[in-house]
C-alpha cells in the first residue's frame, strides 16, 4: 500500500503548465514569426501557415518551460518571478522538465513533417540556443548574457521565412540582426529600473556588474547599429518605401529615447521615466517595424 504511506502530491493545474510557457513573451515571438512568414515572397497554404506559427509558439513555450525548470532557484529570489509555478510550489520540477522536453520535441517534429526540414532545424536550434547557451551557460556567468541570448529571440522571423520559402535570404537575416541588436537596449532599459531585483538574485546584469554609466553608454552604442540595420533593407532594395519610411521614423524616435537614456544620470528619488519609456516603446517599435514589413510586401 505504497500510495497510503507516501504523501500524494497534488498535481499541478493546467493553468500552471500554461504559465510555464511564458505566454507574455510568446506574443512577440509569434508576431515576429508570423511577419517573417507573411513578408516572404511565397504563397503559403493557410493551414500550413497556421501550423508553422503554432510550432514556433509551442517551441517558444517549451524554451520558456525549460528556462523556468532550470532557473526555479533564481526565480524564487526575484519579486517579479517568485509567483511562477515552480518557485511558488504549485508544480514539481520533474513535471516542468517533462513538459518542456515533450513540447519542444513535438513542435520540432511537427514542423519537420508538416512544413520543411530547414525550418524544423532552425526551430530546434533556437530552443537549444535559448536553453543551453543563454539559460544554462551565459545568464549566470556574464553581463553580456542577454547580448548573445538575444539571438534566441531573433530566430522566429527567420523560421517564419524558412517555413514559407524553404530557404533563408538576406532580408530575414537582417530581421534576425535587428532583433539581436534590439535586445540589449530593450533589456538593459528594463534592468536599469529593476536593478535591485536582479542584484538580489545574483544575476550579473550589466547595471549590477558594470554600473549604470556603462549600461547607459551600451544602450546608446547598441542603438546605432540597430537603427542602421532597421533602415538598411530600404536602400538595399529589399523593401519598398512603405517599410523604409516607417522604419526610418520609428527608428529615429527609438534613437531619440535611447539617446536620452544614454546621456542622463540617475538622480535622487529618480522615477526612471525615460528608461521606462524606452522599454515600453521598444516593444511597440518591434511591432511597428515588423508590421511595416508585411504592409510593404502586400501594399507596395
Amino acid at each position: 500500500m505504497t500510495t497510503m504511506t507516501r504523501p500524494l502530491p497534488v498535481p499541478a493545474d493546467w493553468r500552471d503548465f500554461l504559465a510555464l510557457t511564458k505566454p507574455g513573451v510568446m506574443r512577440l515571438v509569434v508576431y515576429t514569426g508570423l511577419c517573417g512568414l507573411l513578408a516572404a515572397p511565397a504563397t503559403v497554404d493557410p493551414v500550413l501557415g497556421f501550423t508553422a506559427i503554432l510550432c514556433i509558439a509551442l517551441a517558444a513555450g517549451a524554451a520558456g518551460a525549460l528556462n523556468q525548470w532550470y532557473e526555479s532557484d533564481l526565480d524564487a529570489k526575484m519579486k517579479r518571478t517568485r509567483g511562477r509555478p515552480l518557485p511558488a510550489g504549485r508544480m514539481d520540477r520533474q513535471s516542468a522538465l517533462h513538459f518542456g522536453v515533450g513540447l519542444g520535441a513535438f513542435a520540432v517534429i511537427l514542423m519537420g513533417l508538416a512544413i520543411n526540414l530547414l525550418s524544423a532545424t532552425i526551430l530546434a536550434g533556437s530552443i537549444l540556443f535559448y536553453v543551453v547557451i543563454y539559460t544554462v551557460w551565459l545568464k549566470r556567468r556574464t553581463p553580456q548574457n542577454i547580448v548573445i541570448g538575444g539571438a534566441a529571440g531573433a530566430f522566429p522571423p527567420v523560421i517564419g521565412w524558412a517555413a514559407a520559402t524553404g530557404h533563408v535570404s538576406a532580408l530575414p537575416l537582417m530581421m534576425f540582426a535587428l532583433v539581436f541588436l534590439w535586445t540589449p537596449p530593450h533589456f538593459w532599459a528594463l534592468a536599469l529600473f529593476v536593478k535591485t531585483d536582479y542584484a538580489n538574485a545574483g544575476v550579473p546584469m550589466l547595471p549590477v556588474v558594470a554600473g549604470e554609466r556603462v549600461t547607459r553608454t551600451q544602450i546608446g552604442l547598441y542603438t546605432v547599429p540597430m537603427v542602421a540595420v532597421a533602415i538598411a533593407p530600404w536602400p538595399l532594395g529589399l523593401t519598398h518605401a512603405i517599410y523604409g519610411v516607417v522604419a526610418t521614423l520609428a527608428s529615429a524616435f527609438f534613437g531619440l529615447l535611447a539617446f536620452r537614456v544614454a546621456t542622463r544620470r540617475t538622480q535622487a528619488e529618480d522615477r526612471m521615466r525615460p528608461e521606462k519609456r524606452l522599454f515600453a516603446y521598444s516593444i511597440a517599435y518591434l511591432f511597428v517595424i515588423f508590421g511595416a514589413l508585411v504592409a510593404d510586401r502586400f501594399l507596395a
Binding site: 500524494l8 498535481p11 499541478a12 493545474d13 493546467w14
Partner: peptide, 8 residues
Amino acid sequence: IRARQRSR
C-alpha cells in the same frame, strides 16, 4: 487532487 485530474 480529483478536481485537478478531471480538469487536466
